[in-house]
Design a protein around this nucleic acid. Structure first.
Lengths: 228, 228
DNA sequence: ACGAAAATGACAGATCGGTGACATATGAAT
DNA sequence: ATTCATATGTCACCGATCTGTCATTTTCGT
């Protein structure tokens, strides 16, 4: 029941044993842990969907963790990052924080400590899941009122933004044309031409480079969905 | 030269040697450290003036640090607390975080690590307490009420200053026109013409040489942001 | 292949923020 | 009190962009 989890975590770690142990510890505590075995995979996944927090190993087969942390910080300022690594020298810790980390835990660690630190970080940053909506490479940053398509910011008009927001908030569900018209345009009265929705949808699709995750359900409405 | 300091810290610690050493390390880094030798004194000082952050020892002559941390958390949700203590057991760390701490540093520690963790915590907890706010070459010195544009001081009118302050305090976030009007002009009633904001914004932009970091979000409001 | 639904391109009116001008308010200097 | 400079709010207007609608074409399910 994916609905039970209240926070997505990405754990970037190449040691499968450790990664699975952490995952097994955290999942009963209502976290959904996705393990990424390379930095490239992590970048890919973050662009697809922004998690509530990132747990990050320093030494990875395809590079150093601090590089990824900087990249995260430059694109998602409020996405918290916690280093989880054997590198416990002061210089490493300082470097980790300098790259933008929110916390730094040295292996080996007690699971309870990791859990406490994770909760403390999440308490401060608020639920990132509320702030960021993501689907198939499209990300809405609700605080910033900005939309990113494959980490490139694009500018939407008010109507286009409202429409996308409604679709993303109903990700995975088919929303009816009338439902959209009522929600996005007007709750009551003042009816607009039904084609207005079609046209706004076209303008939105053009700006988003015809995303594959936005499908037309003929004679019903539309649906946004992560391509699986 | 109290003017140099940009953030107040209270360090609750009964060991004068350690307290002074930390103070001497942090003050050249632009922190103003006030040492409190008892929990009672700490409560007193915090009630008088809320610092940017509290550093907290666990064992104090008149009680336990976690009690103070709980008290702080119940009254000032956003005031960050960092434990600084010899008690390094997992159970202690977990208890510290449970009482509401933002970080937990075990003695003995490297000063650089403390400094890194302090900055990480301050970065998350916002800018109201900081003396200097900066964004894209623009700096506000909240103590002196002065504004610098590329290190050159410029003079703003009262309304312009208030507007800039509001934008900078919400750096990275889109603030709505109505939100600005309520905050900068009047909390209640007495509505000013909506165009007043537009005009003040223009005057501000002119004085700041049309900064790139200040963007208009059409039909929503404005956003200040460090260029990524 | 047919008909309904959706996509598309074009257009005109509406909306919104930026701009210059102006008149009044404020406050300091004389 | 008078003068002067600056600050502030309002207005009218412009230009860019948005937005709703139409006519037409394309797509899709049957």
């Amino acid at each position: 029941m994916a609905d039970l989890f209240y926070a997505d975590l990405y754990y970037i770690e190449d040691d499968q044993n450790i990664a699975l142990a952490v995952k097994e510890y955290l999942e009963p505590k209502n976290f959904h842990v996705t393990i990424c075995a390379t930095l490239a995979e992590a970048r890919q996944r973050i662009k697809e969907k922004v998690p509530a927090c990132v747990l990050l190993d320093w030494n990875m087969p395809d590079g150093r963790g601090d590089g990824l942390c900087q990249w995260i910080r430059s694109h998602w300022k409020d996405l918290p990052v916690i280093f989880l690594t054997v590198r416990g020298d002061s210089a490493d810790i300082v470097a980790g924080f300098k790259s933008g980390a929110d916390d730094y835990v040295v292996k080996p660690f007690e699971y309870e400590v990791l859990y406490s630190r994770l909760l403390a970080v999440l308490r401060r940053t608020g639920s990132a899941a509320e702030r960021y909506l993501s689907c198939g490479g499209i990300v809405i940053d609700q605080n910033r009122h900005a939309v990113f398509c494959h980490s490139e910011e694009i500018s939407l008009s008010a109507a286009e933004y409202q429409l996308l927001l409604y679709l993303m908030r109903n990700k995975g569900r088919t929303v009816t044309r009338t439902g959209i018209l009522e929600q996005v345009w007007d709750v009551n009265g003042s009816y607009v031409n039904d084609n207005t929705l079609t046209v706004t949808m076209k303008r939105l699709r053009d700006k988003l480079s015809q995303p594959a995750c936005l499908k037309t359900i003929r004679s019903v409405g539309y649906r946004m969905e992560d391509t699986i």
